[in-house]
């Protein structure tokens, strides 16, 4: 089966209500073109998972695509301030904010990657997160009798990861920080890779030990140069300060629809470029 798809076709496999997780971290290598396409396709009731997110989560919250967010941290960094659309959604009760401790998202994804229903987590042993959230439970360690905290596994229906290089089989290479992306690719039921460059298989074969995500784990490959913009993509481009700032300042849905529209040509350009 051909994995190389258009952005539209790749995002179409996401169903309303799916658990979706994004690669990258806060302002870095978030799969923003895919996120924008999810918003354009008007997906609903998505359950988002990420250790630390920013515009990816904020944009989908703004567009009414989100039912819940499981994350340790949702905010832009110091300079840009808070993720206001996410905040408003949680404050008005339309979005459920499931706060994690970053590490508990990692442990929940590790659980998914091993196909076990929960993972023990050290460290989380005090405070109200344990009390208020049903995905944390304290039980007695059957071996030592000591209390141990468990986190329920998070099994994303779809993971979307933006990388610098990928071949048509889905063998993907991440340059620079990988964040939790390789783990995520092992935890999710389906994996969509968006890539700056589609490289020949002969090239990934030469660098086989550099492949972070082997193609057999990947369902769809999409060629999207600048697919992480306005977040940064190591070795390719830095953040687009203007785009992020203008988005943060937006109040109305019309402004945001225009924002999404302004990215359409860029987001779909990979389809016409073919392999490079």
């Amino acid at each position: 089966m051909k994995k190389l798809k258009s952005l539209k076709d790749a995002i179409q496999i996401i169903n309303d209500g799916d658990m979706v997780s994004f690669g990258g971290n806060v302002l870095h290598r978030a799969p923003m073109a895919a996120v924008r396409e999810i918003a354009r396709q008007n997906k609903k009731n998505l359950r988002l998972v990420k250790t630390a997110g920013a515009q990816d989560i904020d944009l989908l919250c703004a567009m009414g695509c989100v039912e819940s967010v499981d994350a340790g941290f949702v905010s832009y960094e110091s300079k840009y301030g808070l993720a206001n659309h996410y905040r408003k959604g949680v404050q008005s009760g339309t979005i459920k904010g499931n706060e994690h401790a970053c590490y508990t998202v990692i442990c929940a994804l590790r659980g998914a990657s091993m196909n076990v229903p929960f993972m023990p987590v050290k460290g989380l042993n005090a405070g109200d997160l344990l009390v208020e959230n049903d995905y944390f439970v304290v039980v007695e360690d059957p071996f030592s009798g000591e209390p141990v905290t468990l986190v329920k596994s998070l099994v994303p229906d779809v993971a979307i990861i933006h990388v610098q290089e990928c071949d048509e089989k889905g063998n993907a290479i991440i340059y620079g920080p990988k964040f939790e992306d390789t783990l995520l690719s092992r935890a999710a039921k389906k994996v969509i890779i968006t890539a700056e460059q589609i490289v020949p298989e002969t090239k990934t074969k030469l660098n086989a030990e550099r492949v972070d995500i082997p193609g057999f784990l990947v369902d769809s490959v999409v060629h999207v140069p600048k697919g992480a913009a306005p977040s940064s993509c190591y070795k390719k481009y830095d953040i687009d300060d203007k785009s992020i700032s203008s988005f943060i300042g937006m109040k109305t849905k019309e402004e945001m629809l225009a924002y999404l529209k302004s990215y359409e040509v860029k987001d779909y350009i990979g389809e016409r470029m073919g392999r490079r």
Binding site: A52, F73, S75, Q91, G97, E99, A101
Partner: peptide, 30 residues
């Protein structure tokens, strides 16, 4: 020594939803 990085008001219907504690809840104890 209690630390709040989560919400102002009720956790499930907060007055202000803060960014979240990131790694605090596991790193401060360990």
């Amino acid at each position: 020594g209690n630390v709040n990085a989560s919400v102002i008001g009720n956790y499930h219907k907060p007055k202000v939803r803060l960014p979240g504690g990131a790694g605090s809840a596991v790193l401060i104890p360990t």
